[in-house]
């Protein structure tokens, strides 16, 4: 355990340093990324105001809070995408990862976590601007803040495992991009990324209950903006833990088959 702690510490350090190297491009990327929730925020808070102050249980200020917290959650749950796998295999990077005496997922989990820490620090000024410009309604309790802290990292882990599993499809087909596109569409609709799920049709909400997506976006957001009871907060963390354990189990299950399939011809 201590040895893994050391590896994670070193990799996170490298992630932070790598992010510092690319600070300008990260900032531009972040500004581009923030455009999406700002549009949602303006649209929904306007709708709320024009409907007598609230829509689907959200006031205009709560919509603003929802989408500002969204930007933080989105910053943290960025993980290695399946698109990168093809390049990783073609350039031989994956062979190098396999030669290390540790499971390669540790590399991605730790390295990206490092980049996320730096990214959050860089997000703070943008968040301040959004808060000043749009004035969110948010006053979290310490419990909510604590649950939120664990929930965003839970979201990070769930997304990491999901996208790793998708990436492993690269061993069987080079068309993983199409599968990933389908995944992103499903995630956009069923995670609360587009709108809070309570605004979606009932059948969508039922479907979302059987899928991991809402635990990667909506749950941490709702935890911080005060939309969940204490019971719901802890049940949410338990659900996240369940999806993480499920991801670990599934990865264990398919990993040996993936290694067999991996045939690094010329890489």
């Amino acid at each position: 355990m201590t040895a893994y702690f050391d590896v994670y510490r070193q990799l996170m350090k490298i992630g932070v340093m790598a992010e510092i190297q690319y600070r300008v491009s990260t900032y531009f990327y972040m500004i581009g990324m923030i455009t999406e929730p700002v549009i949602y925020l303006v649209v929904w808070s306007t709708i709320a105001r024009s409907h007598g102050g609230s829509v689907g249980g959200y006031t205009a200020g709560q919509f603003v809070a929802y989408y500002i917290v969204w930007t933080l959650v989105r910053n943290v749950n960025i993980v290695f995408t399946p698109y990168g796998w093809e390049d990783r295999i073609r350039t031989g990077q994956f062979s190098a990862m396999l030669l290390r005496p540790m499971h390669p997922i540790h590399w991605d989990l730790a390295f990206f976590a490092g980049t996320r820490i730096m990214s959050v620090i860089m997000w703070l000024p943008l968040a301040a601007i959004l808060v000043i410009a749009f004035r969110p309604t948010i006053s979290p309790t310490w419990t909510q803040v604590l649950v939120f802290f664990f929930a965003i990292w839970g979201a990070y882990l769930i997304r990491s495992f999901n996208q790793w599993m998708l990436g492993l499809v690269t061993f069987w087909t080079t068309r993983v991009g199409a599968v990933f596109q389908l995944y992103i569409t499903a995630e956009t609709l069923l995670s609360g990324r587009l709108v809070p799920l309570s605004l979606m049709p009932h059948w969508v909400q039922v479907l979302a209950d059987f899928l991991p997506f809402q635990w990667t976006f909506q749950f941490p957001i709702l935890a911080l903006i005060g939309k969940l009871t204490t019971r719901q907060l802890f049940l949410g963390l338990a659900a996240q833990l369940g999806w993480i354990l499920g991801g670990i189990f599934l990865l264990q299950l398919v990993w040996a088959a993936c290694l067999r399939k991996y045939s690094a011809v010329g890489n």
């Binding site: 040895a3 050391d6 590896v7 510490r9 070193q10 990799l11 350090k13 490298i14 340093m17 790598a18 190297q21 690319y22 350039t91 031989g92 062979s95 190098a96 030669l99 290390r100 005496p101 540790m102």
Partner: peptide, 26 residues
């Protein structure tokens, strides 16, 4: 160890000392 002449396992943007330190941990 497997060293391939046309492959780079080092961290591209960082000084090699950081990659060395990482290998120490791994």
């Amino acid at each position: 160890t497997l060293v391939m002449g046309n492959r780079n396992q080092l961290q591209w943007d960082l000084p090699a000392l950081d990659s060395f330190e990482l290998n120490r941990a791994i």
